[in-house]
Write a protein that binds this DNA or RNA. Structure first.
Lengths: 186, 186
DNA sequence: GTCTATAACGTGATAGAC
DNA sequence: GTCTATCACGTTATAGAC
């Protein structure tokens, strides 16, 4: 053990960060399948093998990279009787989150990705939702609410419903938000 | 032009049918990614190459195989004011369709599969729905309705919401069906 | 001439040697 | 950390069987 060792500068940290950045860009732009380990490596200026070494697998890199982008926290806080429309509005405005969701779903054939999707919904949406509702069937309503939210995201970013994508956002907020509200509170 | 030509009996029809049957089974059971062309070929007792020759690609085989399983026709017909609950009920009872939907979504990284998903929703669900609603915003409501239906399917078969899967179906029909109804008819 | 089988090609992720 | 090997995949090229 060298007493004069540097204070652990973690010289691989910079490389990992670089890889993360490139992955985030490429995965979001081209999706999981179309983005190869070699593409990421080339763009980051590193060897393909070290990506696996650092992150374990392409799957885990994908999950780690795209996580922590979607936060419902902001949309959830506010008056309960406006929850439905507020959430739809947040959903329609934040394109970034939608894009990430789409990429994740399209990669959901991989088990790790699907597991992440599951955990993400449960922890980030259903759990806080169940907490803020106080009806006896709060838990059930929270799950149904999440499903309904997922439906809109699915339409917009997975099967790409052109009609909804180009429809006036306010009309969607009005109708879907209203229906969503009914799911949350009788 | 030979007047006595046979009506193209397609000598390989039996083989194609065999491949279709095996594919249907394996794709539904193990999903798109985990099912290899070689697996299908082995199970069907044919050569891997002829699968590609007959169906063009694994993707097209997948789509052709799993199509025509989901038909909303039966659930759609009936009184309009009961549409929501009727559809949820149909959805919860027919496990087959859900399974197929899940497999399709998990393969939606492939462009052909995603295109099929898009067309499938548009033609089989949205279009007939828009026809039977007669409000001025019927078109919009039909699209929102489809999105909401997709959400429930997504929860049950893609991110596998255990709570919803094991919840009493009647409770779900009641709440989600009610909300769905509101989406369809003010 | 149409259908089928053999063998290869290109590319993907990943594991192991240096 | 880097390079190279390996293995599985979908797909194609080629040639044989009916």
């Amino acid at each position: 053990m060298t007493a004069t060792s540097t204070p652990r500068p973690d010289r691989s940290a910079a490389v990992k960060e670089k890889i993360r950045g490139v992955s985030q860009h490429l995965f979001a732009r081209d999706g999981f399948d179309a983005t190869g380990i070699r593409d990421i490596a080339a763009e980051a200026g590193v060897n393909p093998a070290i990506i696996i070494r650092h992150f374990g697998s392409k799957e885990r890199l994908f999950v780690e990279t795209l996580d922590a982008k979607t936060s419902w926290a902001h949309a959830l806080e506010g008056p309960l009787d406006d929850l439905g429309k507020r959430l739809v509005r947040a959903l329609m405005s934040g394109q970034g989150a939608l894009h990430v969701f789409g990429a994740t779903v399209r990669a959901s054939g991989r088990s790790d990705v699907r597991a992440y999707l599951q955990a993400s919904f449960a922890e980030k949406l259903v759990a806080p939702l169940a907490e803020m509702l106080d009806a006896p069937d709060a838990e059930l309503r929270a799950h149904l609410f999440a499903a309904q939210v997922a439906g809109m995201m699915f339409a917009l970013s997975v099967y790409d419903d052109e009609y909804l994508i180009s429809a006036p956002a306010e009309a969607i907020v009005e109708l879907y938000g209203d229906s969503l509200q009914r799911t949350a509170t009788g």
